Simulated assay, not measured.
Amino acid sequence: MFVAALSWSAPSHALFEDSEARRAILELRQRMDSLGQASQRAGERSGDEVSQLRRSLLDLQTQIEALRTEQAMLRGQNEQLQREVAELQRRQKDIAQGVDERLRQFEPVKVSLDGREFQADPAEKRDFEAALAVFRSGRFAEAGTAFSAFIKQYPQSGYQPSALFWLGNAQYATRDYKEAINNFKALLAAAPSHARAPEAALSIANCQIELKDTRAARKTLEDLVRTYPNSEAATAAKERLARLK
């Protein structure tokens, strides 16, 4: 029996050891599986994170490109605005210069005529000079019309005495002696000290001579010599008085 017991004890001990080994192997395998799964999950998580990071980088790059495009567009718009502002400033400058020029057309100018200085509107100056140019061209009837219109349009003008003088001369040239006398007398009444006054008085006498009014002509010439003794017209008046006698 002792032998029998010994014969059974060995297998029992071996069986026990095999079971423990198997458990250890199973536990080791479970641990390895667990570690593998954990590693896999970690790898999956790492892959997901890398994919997410790549997507984030791609999104960031897309945003950067969009910002660059927007910046380029804004730069272009800014340059266009700068060009428009420059063009607007140029136009404003042109408009301001045009306004200044138009205003200057209405600003009085200083005139020196027949020994007198006065202020006149540009249009007034232009109209007088135009009428005088017509007279000097020998178109006396047209000149008379132009000076008559000027006197009516600019009744307070500093040109008035000179306009009356040239109107009278235009009428004398067209043999309208009575109207010429009236305008020469208007000059003498309005501006007796005017540089053209002695000539106007002499012209009155000439008109009276043409009208055969010798007595009136003689009186006019005598008044001329007495009023303007040092004038060239007075010298001419003395000669005419000598011939009238």
Rank of each mutant, 00 (worst) to 15 (best):
S203V: 01
L188K: 05
I64D: 14
E107K: 11
Q71N: 13
S9P: 06
A173H: 06
S12M: 13
A21M: 03
Q156P: 00
E27M: 05
S137T: 09
K152Q: 13
S7I: 08
A216P: 02
A163R: 04
E179Q: 07
R196F: 05
H194G: 05
L221D: 03
L164R: 14
F165R: 02
R218D: 03
R215I: 03
D48G: 09
S34H: 07
E20Q: 09
S148H: 13
Q77T: 03
R54T: 13
R29Q: 10
R175M: 00
E142S: 15
G36D: 03
L241M: 07
S12Y: 14
I64E: 14
A217Q: 04
K93I: 00
G47S: 05
Y177M: 01
K152F: 02
L167H: 03
A4D: 15
E49I: 04
R91G: 12
A24V: 02
G144E: 03
M32I: 02
R218F: 01
T62I: 09
A217H: 04
L58G: 14
V85Q: 15
E232P: 10
T69Q: 13
V109T: 10
A234P: 02
A149Q: 15
E49C: 01
Y228C: 11
P229K: 03
A133C: 05
P108I: 06
Q52L: 11
Y172M: 04
S9E: 08
A123R: 12
A242W: 08
G36K: 07
K219L: 11
S39R: 02
Q61W: 05
R102F: 11
A191S: 09
K212W: 06
K93N: 06
M1P: 13
R215A: 13
E129Y: 14
E179L: 01
Y172T: 02
E179C: 01
T220A: 15
T220W: 07
A190K: 15
F147C: 12
Y154F: 12
P108L: 08
T145I: 10
R139G: 08
A195H: 06
N183K: 02
H13T: 07
L58D: 15
S231H: 07
E44W: 02
Q105K: 12
I181D: 05
R175S: 01
L67E: 15
S193Q: 12
Q171Y: 00
G158S: 04
R243H: 14
A189Y: 00
F16V: 09
S34K: 04
L244T: 12
A200T: 00
G47L: 04
